[in-house]
Design a protein around this nucleic acid. Sequence first.
DNA 1: GCTAGGTTACTAAGCGCATAGTCAGTCACG
DNA 2: CGTGACTGACTATGCGCTTAGTAACCTAGC
Lengths: 218, 218
Amino acid sequence: MAKPRQARLTVIEVGQQPDLDDESPQLWREDLPEVARNMLTSAVRCFATNGFHGTTTRDIPGMLGLSPAALYVYFPSKASVLFEIIRTGHERVLEHITTPELDQLDAATRLRTLVARYTEWHARHHVAARVSQYDFTGLNVEDYDVVLELRQQTSTIFRSAVQAGVDDGSFENVDVQRVARAILSLGIDLVRWYRLDGSDSPEQVAQFNADLALKMVT
Amino acid sequence: MAKPRQARLTVIEVGQQPDLDDESPQLWREDLPEVARNMLTSAVRCFATNGFHGTTTRDIPGMLGLSPAALYVYFPSKASVLFEIIRTGHERVLEHITTPELDQLDAATRLRTLVARYTEWHARHHVAARVSQYDFTGLNVEDYDVVLELRQQTSTIFRSAVQAGVDDGSFENVDVQRVARAILSLGIDLVRWYRLDGSDSPEQVAQFNADLALKMVT
DNA sequence: GCTAGGTTACTAAGCGCATAGTCAGTCACG
DNA sequence: CGTGACTGACTATGCGCTTAGTAACCTAGC
């Protein structure tokens, strides 16, 4: 029986509170070392619980049973960990709602699909999404700009979908900007209260929000 | 001409960025000294910009041109400042949506009024409301419980209003819990993006959200 | 099979600075 | 001369980050 490399007990179980359980651990880039990906998962949980400024550089590796210095083996700074999380989150949600077949659909189905996908993603990754939304201001200026660009691309996709339905007459003549904002609000605000162990499955909230979006435009 | 008591220039103008301008300064308890109320206004702006943990005890009195120690003349700790802000915010919004004549109205008008009032309040006090929503987790346990109670009262008012319409048949047979949550989301998520100097007045967003709420139940 | 030399994956210790909070003291005003 | 309003100077602790070091493992040569 091999002697364990690491004598100290890992405290990763502490992070397994039900409200911090989601699919965020599967989010990270494959080319990162496994420990780096664990570090991001740990950081996501710390940031989601205490915020970026409320989390210390000891907390993040500490959750993995590693020493404070271990963080700096994989990341140059605490801020770079935050950026990696938020950028990845924004990229993933964008690629999840961007599918080529969407343009072939009629306006109503297109909007339904978009809202359902957006909502389901936020439900499945609500811990990482919470960090992406709430600790946005912890980013430094250059990083902020990168993320802002991704956010604007996302908004544009929703506005276009609403606009398309208004143009072809299948939706009412609604205020496109405001309706798109309201639809995004429903998806984003989910991260404030959603729990995977609650009564609503990701698919159920997704369907519910898609229904609401359709009601908003008719 | 009276020599100014305070030689140092006040930096209160720094807080007058357009996105930090709202009616929060009128929120505080009348029985607090004027300087204490200024301190709360200053703290609201700091917390809204950098979060509770991202704000130092020097920042808050510093915005008023006062020394670091001045904060402790009016408040026992930084955490007590946060609590005063969040508690006051939650109390004020609750008293703003709780009006006796509401029960006399038909279900649709009642819901419209409720949503419009809730939304308008969040628009007018979006800076304080942002702190109330985002720095919620900075509270210690006892304080958290006090605020949670106020939040639950607010939720209940919305759920009852939706339920009433379902019961008397003026609304569709919707999922009351989910619809109420979606309506609250629209009001709360406002604080993430709303600016008083933007294109939407508080009355306009209020009307828009009230319309959306009605669409959700029909 | 055994070891020298190199590599991987971390840690122990701590530096310098920032931060929350304290308290004796000061100063304008009545 | 007292009082209310506030400050200067301070302390103890916590924080982000660095650096030199090391245990465990891998590989090559004999």
